[in-house]
Nucleic acid binder design. Structure first.
Lengths: 332, 332
DNA sequence: GTTAGCACTCCGATATCGGGAGTGCTAATT
DNA sequence: AATTAGCACTCCCGATATCGGAGTGCTAAC
């Protein structure tokens, strides 16, 4: 743990570096922090902080720059923050005037988050897990292809095409379909569906039972269906990383859906700040601030990413605020 | 129109510039083209081409670089091309082994196109226009909210939530719903639906008729519903534009769905190559090669974009080939 | 533990320079 | 009239040198 003055020095150093991007000198810290000591004292403390791994020098006669560990300490102990009234209002008006289909809504949210934070933003859509089935319909598109459409009580719709080996008769489809409606009414997605034989299946003909079983599989799979990731504010990236090759690697991460989701730290509950090596993407100068929105069931995560030199104080607050607002908006 | 030698010189100049990115000298052209004349003659012709606006010099003692007009002439008159066997095979295997839900399929196609061309790729999804309604279902999610789900004969599903002022009874919803099924069976989206009173509406109660009318509006609007744009291979951008501020402007274009669609030249039929000022995005160093896929009805457009210095010969071929393959894949 | 003073380091901006690639022009040739 | 060899001229670009200044570490005094 750091003593008061060293804490203050580290805090001012990080914040000065966040705003200017230049290595910070002992004098600059002194001026910012209005400490009751001299530059030489600050230099002594800086030497200690450097020795402990919180900061480093780009070269011999330069100022200091935070290390991973320095940022981590700052985020964990030194960065309280609250939002300006205007920002809060902006979030509120945005969500109070939003009425759109879910996908569009999430995309717009990612744009909003990016615009407020000035960092590119990610929003992971909610899954179907935990949703209650309200309606299921089976449509025979081609002789051997069935389209299964599932609607939940929150208005989410899931579709899936089913390829059969033998063409069923319309009557058989209807038979299976009616049994499904009975079986799945009020069914909660994610609950166990396949393990035991059910009463609805009893009366079905062989052909209808086959269809029935196949569709139950589809419904079972729906709970873990691919969740969408929405990305907004990518154009901020050029301001954040000057280096083309770094930019390239970040874009490569974004090109792959799988790795994008990893950025959001799905395991975490609540807010998470991950720095550099803590992120699976394997980038060094990368930080992600993310937070959960909505219920466990009908919610997801959102966040922003940027270089380690990031305005954590404000960003964390904004991400949390927007998460909460989206959660409320979806819940109500 | 340019005479043979000038044409050849322009072609070689463009292709040399495309591969090297350096201003091209008279001697380099001579070596490439194996022309039966001297460097001085080439220089004379270059002076003429420059005078006519096909090429320009970055500075006094440098080689020549194509202008907008030079690229345009090249694309229109000088760039036939055919694909290597391996590329063709790759496209074929990709599509023959693809079985997925539409959205995923289009995203994967954009990735493929980008990977083959090494330019970022766009795929505009097909609209619902021209699709035949196969099934329509109305689900009452909340007392005053109805969910309308539409399935077409090709297995596309469209959903839309409908907010009512007064809560209908389930019986009224069923009544309207049954009339809708009768009215919309085999209806082709995009056809006129609202202009004349129809027979199915005759027998409905006031409340049901209200719902019925509102839903017809929803169905009518479905034909022109927002089509998705899929984007792949964004990480190639850093290789294409070295300049951060240019990159930033391109990313800003991609951030907005509306402007992204403009890139694809939706008016065009078949293949389109647009250069610099011809593109609404207002970028100077930008070229887009795009092509239609599928039928007029169930099709869309795809394309790639890059700087003007682009391998048009190959790119045009690839975009056309992939378009055709996707069209076939969707049609079959 | 703190501070003033000072020598030392090293970055980065600016200036200078020369080689070399490429052109345009002229005059001769076909 | 078109082509070509020859040559003077232009100007970019990379390498090298220089220099001021900001910042540090260390030492010795408080």
């Amino acid at each position: 743990m750091l003593d008061d003055r060293k804490s203050a020095i580290l805090r001012e150093l990080v914040e000065e570096y966040i705003t200017t991007g230049e290595p910070v000198s002992s004098r600059a810290i002194l001026e910012r922090a209005k400490l009751d000591c001299s530059a030489a004292t600050v230099r002594n403390d800086l030497a200690v902080l450097e020795n402990d791994g919180y900061i480093m020098k780009p070269h011999t006669s330069a100022g200091r720059v935070p290390t991973d560990r320095g940022y981590r300490y700052y985020v964990d102990h030194l960065s309280p923050g609250s939002l300006r009234r205007r920002t809060r209002d902006r979030i509120e008006t945005f969500f109070s005037s939003m009425h759109a289909e879910l996908g569009r809504m999430l995309k717009d949210t990612s744009d909003l988050l990016a615009e407020i934070t000035h960092y590119p933003a990610l929003v992971l859509g909610p899954g179907l897990q935990g949703q209650t089935v309200r309606d299921i319909h089976v449509v025979q598109i081609e002789p051997t292809v069935l389209l299964v459409v599932l609607a939940t009580d929150t208005g989410r719709v899931h579709q899936s095409a089913l390829q059969l080996s033998d063409p069923p008769t319309p009557a058989e489809v209807t038979e299976a379909s009616e049994a499904l409606v009975a079986r799945l009414d009020e069914f909660v997605l994610g609950d166990d569906l396949l393990s035991e034989r059910d009463s609805e299946a009893q009366a079905l003909s062989t052909a209808a039972l086959d269809i029935y079983d196949r569709i139950l599989e589809v419904v079972d799979a729906a709970a873990v269906v691919r969740r969408e990731v929405y990305l907004g504010g990518t154009s901020f990236m050029t301001d954040l990383w000057e280096d083309l090759s770094k930019l390239n690697r970040i874009l490569a991460v974004l090109d792959r859906q799988a790795t994008v989701r990893e950025l959001l730290d799905e395991e975490a509950v609540g807010t998470s700040v991950r720095l550099g090596p803590e992120i699976p993407a394997g980038e060094d100068d990368l930080a992600v601030v993310s937070s959960s929105y909505g219920d466990d069931d009908a919610g997801g995560r959102m966040g922003v990413f940027g270089p380690m030199r990031m305005d954590y104080r404000r960003t964390i607050k904004v991400v949390e605020e927007v998460s909460e607002a989206l959660g409320d908006s979806l819940g109500g």
